[in-house]
């Protein structure tokens, strides 16, 4: 009980800092997810008729995910400096694969007879894409976006190591000061607020899915 009370004391004496870092993490999640979605969906759509290009893009995106995060965050510092930029680039590269893979899978899962009948009714290739393929693939694509968003919340804690801010700041300062007073409270702050943020984002994206997934199709 004492631990919880002292954690609340810690939080309430630093509301400004808490809100600021929370917003920094949220900014990472939003920008990274939006950018990765745009790039991944575009790549998935453009390579849909070309098996080789499709495999190649997925392989490249997979490679990013295998690079240790600490390395990926630091590797761009010589080029873009410290702070937001190297953190954004690293998280963006991580977020590509789930969305791209789901875009490819979603487009592949559209029944070929549906596409055949769409073409047979004189829909142009663009109409087939935007009126048939993407709406039907959307639930799967959105699931990929959700994975990427949650992934970004988790690894955004590393950004603090390249002066990128975010909730990782609490964890880093706590770890550095162990076992001094308030060090554990700082670590808990980073961890718990990340969890809360992840849950909130999950709820938001599930709600988006409920309203944007086409009726008549169960995902």
């Amino acid at each position: 009980m004492d631990g919880i009370r002292s954690w609340f004391d810690y939080l309430s004496s630093r509301t400004d800092l808490v809100v600021e870092t929370l917003l920094q993490t949220l900014a990472y999640v939003v920008t990274v997810t939006v950018a990765a979605s745009i790039v991944s969906i575009t790549v998935g759509v453009l390579t849909r008729h070309n098996a080789l290009a499709k495999e190649l893009s997925l392989s490249i995106a997979s490679v990013f995910l295998t690079i240790p995060s600490l390395a990926l965050f630091t590797i761009f510092i010589p080029i873009v400096g410290l702070g937001f930029a190297p953190s954004f680039i690293a998280m963006f590269l991580y977020a590509l694969l789930p969305i791209m893979r789901n875009t490819v899978a979603g487009l592949d899962s559209v029944d070929s007879s549906v596409i055949e009948s769409a073409k047979g009714m004189g829909l142009t290739p663009n109409q087939v894409l935007f009126k048939v393929q993407l709406p039907l693939a959307w639930p799967v694509i959105l699931a990929g976006i959700r994975v990427s968003a949650l992934l970004t919340v988790g690894i955004s804690a590393i950004a603090t190591l390249v002066a990128g801010g975010g909730l990782g700041d609490f964890i880093k300062s706590g770890l550095a000061r162990l076992p001094l007073p308030n060090s554990l409270e700082a670590i808990w702050t980073g961890v718990i607020l990340s969890l809360v943020l992840a849950l909130a984002i999950d709820v938001v994206l599930r709600t988006v899915g409920r309203f944007s997934n086409p009726s008549g199709v169960r995902s």
């Binding site: 029944d111 007879s113 549906v114 596409i115 009948s117 769409a118 047979g120 009714m121 039907l136 199709v217």
Partner: peptide, 15 residues
């Protein structure tokens, strides 16, 4: 668009 086309699997748009 000037010729109706019916296939075995029908291919109705599920959405």
């Amino acid at each position: 668009r000037r010729m109706g086309y019916v296939i075995q699997q029908v291919g109705l748009f599920p959405h």
